[in-house]
């Protein structure tokens, strides 16, 4: 295995922080070669070093984005950790629908990767709507990575991917066969609005949401960028709305924007701006 040059390592660290907000943890350095090799080959470079030199030269800006996307952890599964999605379907959506008195409940999957979380939310929302007459849920899903968003929009997954977290009855109900792959049903796909958002930069005008799922995306962020990203997220959540994070994640260190209801794991409620 070749060793990544020190100047290339520093350059890639900076690139990843700027494009995705993330740090390259020392124990993840081994992934650089393996993640960038396919990109280097596809683009006709003799080595990862040659690819990095080309990015540094700035000749093709799209290569910088593609490299940053390749370096991000691709871990994703349907209904990851299961409990947050049951809580979303059974408790959060009914409560938000009551609070919104008939208006749509707006939900955002921030850092949706290849779309598994977003489709899980769409399935959960559909079940909740079926049980609660008059409930309406609008779903938005965003990620910084174009390639991941393209896959998410297509809603196409392999046998291995659909078997990670998706119960078989939901696979049969909400997906259809597409040659050797599985495609999310048109009904699910048309529910979702997709967009590109980089949480390491100023957020675009995206509106306000009642429920935001932002799970395991900020865990690898640089500390300063993580706080800024959480503050931006807080501004996009309606008072009384909720932020759902992953195991071991919390926004409570950014100030008084959120509070954690007793016993609610991974769930944080947006405090009204004047109280924050």
């Amino acid at each position: 295995m070749s060793v990544v040059r020190r100047d290339h390592l520093l350059f890639l660290t900076e690139l990843l922080a700027e494009r995705a907000g993330q740090t390259l943890a020392p124990d993840r350095l081994f992934v650089i070669e393996s993640r960038l090799s396919p990109l280097a080959r596809r683009e006709g470079f003799a080595s990862v070093a040659a690819l990095v030199e080309a990015i540094k030269g700035g000749a093709e800006p799209r290569l910088a984005q593609a490299a940053a996307e390749a370096l991000v952890d691709p871990e994703s599964s349907f209904f990851r950790d299961r409990a947050p999605f049951a809580q979303f379907r059974d408790l959060i959506l009914p409560a938000m629908a009551r609070a919104r008195s008939g208006k749509p409940v707006r939900v955002w999957s921030a850092g949706c990767g290849t779309g598994q979380e977003a489709y899980s939310l769409a399935i959960a929302a559909e079940h909740a709507e079926t049980r609660t007459p008059g409930m309406s849920v609008e779903l938005t899903a965003t990620d910084f990575a174009e390639a991941a968003l393209e896959k998410a929009r297509a809603g196409l997954y392999t046998h291995f991917e659909v078997q990670r977290g998706l119960p078989i009855r939901q696979l049969v109900e909400h997906f259809e066969r597409a040659d050797d792959l599985w495609r999310a049903s048109p009904r699910l796909r048309t529910r979702l609005r997709w967009g590109r958002v980089n949480h390491a930069a100023e957020l675009p005008e995206i509106g306000r949401f009642d429920v935001v799922f932002c799970r395991y995306m900020l865990k690898d962020f640089e500390p300063g960028r993580r706080i800024a990203a959480l503050q931006s997220l807080a501004r996009c959540i309606t008072p009384g709305g909720v932020l759902i994070m992953g195991e071991g994640e919390s926004p409570l260190d950014i100030g008084a924007a959120f509070r954690q209801p007793t016993g609610a794991r991974g769930l944080f409620q947006r405090v009204a701006a004047e109280a924050a």
């Binding site: 046998h159 078997q163 119960p167 078989i168 009855r169 696979l171 049969v172 259809e176 066969r177």
Partner: peptide, 18 residues
Amino acid sequence: TEIERIGQALAAGADEYV
């Protein structure tokens, strides 16, 4: 891996399908 066949296994009493 056909949906119809998976459905047969579920109808026969399977809880999950790999």
